[in-house]
């Protein structure tokens, strides 16, 4: 266990965010049934949320005494956070791509959305050219579809806007 590790950029702020989140949960745990009885449904959530608040406070106190990071100004800390913890490239852009993929998953269906997502991912992350990315993404989707849909019988999102039965197609 290494308690004396130097704080990472944003770690102290993350501790405060966890405390706020814990307090929010504590408030909601209290709202379940208050202190009505010792066996009410809200008691255990209250205990768990209180444990979160206490541990978040302990973490904040420990962070204050731990060796601080190299940054001294707010802008420097922000720069370090963006370079070490949440870099725009590839982290933020890639998370945005994943969110985009999830949003089109139901309307477009699994095959087209996964194909586009994988193609863009391989192209962006691996940088070996569009043709390589295309071949790899087609191959990957084919294997995933064959294995999970055809062999394991897993239900995958179908293309909503091409739902022929919903459009009255009976053939």
């Amino acid at each position: 266990m290494n308690e004396q590790r130097r704080l990472r950029p944003g770690e102290a702020t993350f501790g405060y965010m966890l405390l706020i989140f814990s307090l929010f949960l504590l408030y909601n745990a209290f709202a379940i049934s208050g202190f009505s009885s010792l066996s009410s449904p809200g008691v255990f959530p209250l205990v768990a949320a209180s444990a979160m608040v206490v541990s978040a406070l302990t973490i904040i106190l420990k962070n204050r005494t731990a060796p601080q990071g190299e940054a001294t100004t707010f802008s420097h800390r922000l720069r370090l956070f963006h370079s070490q913890i949440l870099p725009l490239k590839p982290m933020v852009i890639y998370i945005a791509m994943v969110i985009g993929f999830m949003m089109v998953l139901e309307p477009f269906g699994f095959i087209p959305s996964a194909l586009i997502f994988l193609f863009v991912s391989f192209w962006y992350l691996y940088a070996k050219g569009a043709v390589f990315a295309l071949v790899l993404s087609i191959g990957s989707v084919a294997i995933v579809y064959a294995l999970f849909r055809l062999v394991f019988k897993v239900v995958l999102p179908e293309m909503e806007w091409l739902d022929l039965e919903a459009l009255g197609w009976e053939g």
Binding site: Y94, V98, F101, M102, L105, E106, F110, A114, F117, L118, S121, F122, L125, Y126, A127, L136, S140, V144, F148, V154, V155, L156, P157
Partner: peptide, 24 residues
Amino acid sequence: PRAILVPLILILSVVGTYAIQNNV
């Protein structure tokens, strides 16, 4: 390479999670 692994893990994670209740 990890650049190939990461998108594949995410695809499998999505397929696996969707399969639980067929709910996005």
